[in-house]
Structure formats: C-alpha cells, structure tokens
Design a protein around this nucleic acid. Structure first.
Lengths: 214, 214
DNA sequence: GCATATTGAAAAATAATGTTATAATAAAGA
DNA sequence: TCTTTATTATAACATTATTTTTCAATATGC
C-alpha cells in the first residue's frame, strides 16, 4: 500500500466492482484500458477511478492507461484474494446450504471446511462434500482447526452467541446473514448481509416510483 | 411524506434498521423511547436519528420522545411494508431456493408466486409449495399475473436477459443476486445483493487487521 | 407553575465526490 | 529521431452529501 492513511470504506466497497469488470475484460482478451474507457464501462467518473486506484499505488502508465492483467492482480492482492481462507458455516438451513454451494461454485480462495447445526436431522449429512457437525462441537473444532472466517446463517436469537464462540475460537472475520446487528471482538472484521433490509429498501423505491406516477 | 425533496439513499438504508430495533422494543413491550436511548441501542447519533425521521415528518414529541408503536407503523408505511408484493424468482438453484425459503419463513407482505428455471430436472418441482415453471413461459406468466418484484438468481451471463424480460413484463422492482451490474427500464427499482463483493470486502478488512498486527 | 427532557430545525462542520490544471511519460506517427 | 497525442499521477479547488452541533420551542412530570 502507498501509505498508512486510512482508506475510506467507500473506496473499499468499489474495489470488488473494479475487479469484476477487469475480470470480464480479461476474458475478452483486452489487455489495456484507460480510466476514461473504464469510466464509461463501470459508471464511476474517470477521475474517481484514478483517485481510487492511486490510494494504493500508481498502477497506470501515462500515455498508456492500465494493463488489465496486472491491475487485476494488484486489486486482487489489495483485497487479499491472493490468499486462502478457511471458513465454517454455522446454521445449515437453506441459506447456509446455499452459501456453501455458492462459495463452492465460485471457486476461489474461500473454502468452507465445516458446517454446524443443532438439528439432529442435519448433523452427519454431507453438503457439497462438507460434513455437517454438531454445533456442540464448534469450540472443539475451532481449537483444532485454524479458521479464518465464520459465516453466521442462524436465526436472530442465536446469532450473538454464535459470534462469541467464533471470535473466541480465533476467527478473523464474520460474514453475517442473521437479521441482526452483532458485536465482534476487537480486531475481528464484520460484514453484514441483511437480506430483509435490502428487500425493504427495494420496497421503498418501488413505492416512491408509484407515487411519482400519480 | 413531509415534502418532495429527494431523500438520500443513506437515509433509506437506515430505515429498515430503525424498524428492526423498534420491532424488538415492541416485543419487549416498551412503549416510548428518546432519540438518545435509541442512539445507544442502534449506534447512530441521536441527532442523526432525529434528522432521519424528520425527513418524513415530526413523529416525536418534545419532552417525551417517540412512541414506539406508532413510529414502527410510520416507518413500515414509509418503506411500503403495509402493502403486499407478488414476486417471481428466476433461477432455481440453491440460492433461488434459499431465497424462496427465506421469504417464506419471514412471513410478511412479500410472497413468491412462481419460480422459473431452464433446467428440466427442476421444472415441475414444488419448493415450499411454489411451482417451478419453465423459463420459456416467463413472458406468458407475467402477461397473465401482475407481478411486483422479480428476483434474479441466475448466473452472470443470463442475468441481463432475464431482467429485460422482467421489466418488459411490468415488474416494478428487481432484487438481483447475480454477480453483475444490470440495466433496468426507467421507473423500475433495482437492489443488488452482491455476495461476492461483500465477501471480498471482508477479506480486505481481515488482511488490513493482519497487517496492523505486524 | 417551574424545572427538566426532548424534539425540530437551522447552521456549521466534515466527508465524499467531482472537476480542473499541470507535469511527466509512453505510444504512435512523420 | 523528433513531434504530437494520449494518458496517468498529483495537487488544488469546487461542489455535493452527510453528519454533528446548537438552540429555540414545547411537552412532561413533579
């Protein structure tokens, strides 16, 4: 990274998006792109793109633009996607299973190593070749298996207890799908996916559009 | 609403969260709360809470605070959650099934009326009592069944085509889970849930924390 | 009726984004 | 080789968006 200044979360949220577009360009065998071309593709202004990237280093070349392969690699490295992550999923309902399948399908450095549930009907099953273990054994598992990310797919009422266990077990990040706000140990990253909040925002905009038509 | 001024999306994104906390307070039979108490609960500053709510009207009373039941109802109405929404899911893989189950479980005004897929093995199945129909018949279905929201759970390459069909079929909102950016018809609301982007941001923060420890 | 609590609303402060200007440099063409 | 053009990096500035501060107004509760 270029310097120690804190990068705003607005920038960080844009990085995965840059990366997605660069991946597409790679697939099309494009090998260079200017901030202007990227701008018309992604929709951010060219200067914002240049400024965003400049937070991390001067990846472009004057008169040339950005080399797609190397910029892709740089952004991947900034995001930490050049590394492997061991994950566990707690809560093996439909959503948990879907996430297991999702990360399985989008092969990458993120690997679900185990799943946990309290439901005896699920314990012992294999989903995408991942065993569903008894939630009782989560502490023990974390003690013996270094785990980077805990994925919370439980209901609201169990979520905080699960997160406490995960944090104490040494995970570095929580990916939370439970519809509640969680407290994590200092130094643990938290990323929420609040599906109901998302759906409710959508409802707001639908209604606003309806009202504008009157 | 108080006036015609456009409300910023930052405010809209907070509304579902206010509503969640108010729901919890209702369950605990609390009947009033001040912006200060709400603040220490939710984590936003008291003045932000007051200002957010004031965008839509003066729901509080000086010297008293906010009545929880009525504020809950107000926010629900602002979000359009006092209404019913008919939805279809396109793409009946694990994620599509999980979403179907999710909205089924969190009973509310959002009802999945049909699911669509191209996979003959899935067509004809019933998931949570919702029939999986042939994607070929989507246009026909939309013509005959007024549908408010289209949920896109396909892969990246099919997503835009699906969205075009949904928009032409008259949906008012798209809830997109495909890992790509979509173009919607004017007047149609779009809400993205980019799971991979979310996971990648998490990876960034995990790595930043790691580096800070050195 | 008075002290206190609390909102609503305006103003001020801060943060984020967008624009402009310029020097440096690579690419492309004469 | 030299010149022109394209384009980034960087800084300064402008604008817009968001958050915080401040304080008058008003309801509550003793």
């Amino acid at each position: 990274m270029k310097n120690n200044m804190k990068i705003s979360s607005a920038v960080i949220k844009r990085l995965p998006r840059y990366r997605r577009y660069l991946m597409e360009l790679q697939k099309k065998n494009v090998d260079r792109i200017s901030s202007n071309e990227l701008s018309s593709l992604i929709g951010y202004t060219a200067s914002q793109i240049r400024q965003d990237l400049n937070n991390f280093g001067g990846f472009g070349q004057q008169g040339y633009g950005y080399n797609i392969n190397s910029l892709y690699k740089e952004i991947s490295a900034i995001l930490g996607l050049d590394q492997e992550y061991g994950m566990v999923i707690v809560g093996t309902g439909n959503l948990g299973q879907a996430i297991a399948n999702y990360t399985h399908y989008y092969k990458s450095g993120f690997k679900v190593c185990a799943m946990f549930d309290v439901n005896p009907k699920l314990i012992g099953l294999r989903i995408n070749d991942i065993e569903v273990l008894d939630y009782e054994d989560l502490d023990e598992y974390l003690k013996n298996n270094q785990t980077d990310i805990g994925i919370v797919c439980t209901n609201m009422s169990s979520a905080q207890e699960v997160v406490d266990k995960l944090c104490n077990g040494g995970v570095e990040g929580i990916w939370n799908f439970a519809p509640t706000d969680l407290i994590v140990k200092d130094g643990v990253a938290l990323e929420d996916v609040h599906l109901s909040d998302s759906l409710h925002s959508l409802a707001y905009y639908i209604n606003r559009n309806r009202q504008n038509q009157d």
